[in-house]
Design a protein around this nucleic acid. Structure first.
Lengths: 141, 141, 141, 141
DNA sequence: GTGGTCTAGACCACT
DNA sequence: GTGGTCTAGACCACC
């Protein structure tokens, strides 16, 4: 199964961030294996019909975060060393993020079950996306 | 048990947002009761070693969201709970919050199951926190 | 016709609130269209001779109310209109706004008829305003 | 008809402000005539079951604004010179207040007719209040 | 260039 | 004492 990425224009999430999130998800879920090559900047840009600079931005961030590595002249590859945060640091950051979601969910009047369900649905959706460009309503702003 | 708030510098979640989240959690879990007074802007700022404006901003956001009320000259108080957002807006905000958590979770290397589990645990037991300032890495933010 | 905003120092209405009100009026009267860009924080601050933070605060409030959207790095844009408040909240906010106007009107010595008439006139024709800074009395506020 | 004032505890409008508004309304609508005496601070405080300091505060503000005058040892009297703002200044302040209401009303999705109606209803309500203490829900906070 | 956040310090109105 | 507003200046991430 090849890497598949979907972007949505008109979303409040920037395009480059969407690419980052989905590559992350692919790597961490095992769809992209260590040392595996990613599509080149210009190939992916052409597929998604976005500016190559945007893809370049996304790849740069992934490199900074240790998810992928750049091998100049050959391309981008999934990094072998992915855990850049210590266990304690990961737990601490995760706790903050969970607190944020749970507070927001409760404030909006959702039940614990509804909150858990919403997350469960989303984590699955992350695992199966198609490479295409869906436009929310109006073109790129 | 008095209200206790913890902030982490160096986190991707801004300080004022952490305060907002934790006050929300305290109110909605029953640790802060209706009509109960919150620590004053200046007092909380001093305890957390942050600028009073940062706390003021957090409190302002909570006022706008209907969680607390400002009584100038007297202090901030937990307001009687009311549903201020329309159904569509609630769904929209929940989706944003879930997206944020799931992205962060994947970025930190957690599996879908671990993310869902973390949320499930938190929605059942709002743990207590200690009022202190722990520095993640250094730097002003 | 470009967006024009006027502020009055020395008024009981705070500067940031005046900006919020006038942007709202411009959007809802059609002078600012959906997806249209607003002047940047720094540009508007310079034009009105106020601190950029003051404009930032006004824009933040408009974002929270769903009137405009922030696209970091690109600017602020008028968002597609949506109803974010529940019926009860809408009624509550309207009552507060009416109370505020009526009190101010009586304080200024207007009769009930004059107050109603002033509102009636304004709801029909959103007049244009000039971008300038007129000082009522002096003083920083 | 004697002066009648109503206050509501639990409202977001402070007690002293409610007193100011209603005295203003009474004076400007003619129910309180020029040179007429107002109830003394302690008498009014007793009637409304509030702290005398609160009434004193309200009267002080009314004096500052030229609505009433203090005659030490004799009491408070409606002032003969009520218009402290010039015509232009009054118009300017009124315009700001009207803009604020109309913007808020439109943003909340109300029609011009509904906005005008809400104001019309309220300006009439101002003219007929009873002297009593109605509690919103829970006692003074 | 853009907006977002934080700090520091000031003055105000209100209780 | 309280919160509310404004100014000034800084650093950051994003495009």
């Amino acid at each position: 199964m090849p890497l598949t990425i979907t972007i949505q224009t008109g979303s409040s999430v920037s395009i480059y961030k969407q690419v980052v999130d989905q590559v992350c998800a692919a790597v961490l879920s095992g769809r992209l294996l260590e040392d595996e090559a990613l599509p080149s900047v210009r190939v992916l840009a052409e597929q998604l019909v976005v500016n190559p600079n945007t893809i370049s931005r996304a790849y740069s961030e992934l490199v900074r975060e240790g998810v992928i590595e750049a091998h100049p002249g050959r391309g981008m590859f999934v990094s072998r060393h992915r855990q850049i945060y210590s266990g304690a640091e990961r737990a601490r950051r995760m706790e903050l993020a969970v607190t944020s979601l749970v507070s927001e969910g409760f404030m909006l009047g959702f039940t614990p079950e509804q909150i858990v369900e919403a997350v469960a649905v989303r984590t699955k959706a992350h695992g199966s996306t198609k490479l295409s460009r869906s436009t929310a309503k109006g073109g790129a702003r």
